[in-house]
């Protein structure tokens, strides 16, 4: 199905399918809900206003993911340049509380994983976020990031290795 991004019907259908994906990508790079929302809004406005023809919804999705990923990386780069001592406003989304202890454990793991992803080097972070949170395969990631598939494979592996060691350290630290 061809997609014309300025056609309001096409737009809504792409939006419905792709928004959750790009929101996850933005969030797991910036770890800030408000910033992620702004980025996604901006990306979809650009998408609509540019009036691009895509061969399929997937092609439109890759375009949007690339834009959102770049904007998110720019945000964290700018943030890093800004005074590091400024207290970071990490806005963890408020979750409906499930039941006492279970919810607590879940939240702890999430916080740990999130802070580990946050500390990954940019190149590994992009690949890992697209792999785990945008649910893309190596080929799709390679297309979006414009790198080779084997490069994606190596980066996924390295990112997981670093994640593993960071999470192990955290767990030991907690227990």
């Amino acid at each position: 199905m061809e997609v014309h991004s300025s056609d309001s019907k096409s737009f809504r259908s792409v939006y419905e399918q792709v928004f959750p994906v790009v929101m996850r990508v933005a969030y797991h790079i910036t770890y800030n809900m408000d910033v992620s929302e702004d980025i996604c809004q901006e990306a979809f406005i650009r998408f609509y206003e540019k009036g691009i023809d895509f061969q399929s919804v997937d092609e439109a999705k890759y375009w949007l993911i690339r834009v959102v990923k770049n904007m998110s990386i720019n945000v964290i780069k700018r943030k890093a340049r800004e005074d590091a001592t400024v207290e970071r406003l990490k806005k963890a989304p408020s979750l409906p509380i499930l039941n006492g202890e279970q919810a607590l454990i879940g939240d702890e793991t999430r916080a740990m994983v999130r802070s580990a992803v946050e500390r990954l080097p940019e190149k590994l972070k992009s690949v890992l976020v697209l792999k785990e949170y945008a649910d893309l395969n190596y080929k799709q990631i390679a297309g979006i990031l414009r790198i080779s598939e084997s490069n994606v494979k190596v980066r996924v592996h390295r990112a997981r290795k670093i994640m593993e060691s960071m999470l192990d350290r955290e767990e030991m630290h907690v227990s």
Partner: peptide, 27 residues
Amino acid sequence: RLRETLLSSALTQQEIQPHQEKVLSFI
């Protein structure tokens, strides 16, 4: 297990929904 841990920290649809609606109505 590592992969599952990573996936478990993903933003849920429940968390995304309000933002999805807000941005759509804005646009």
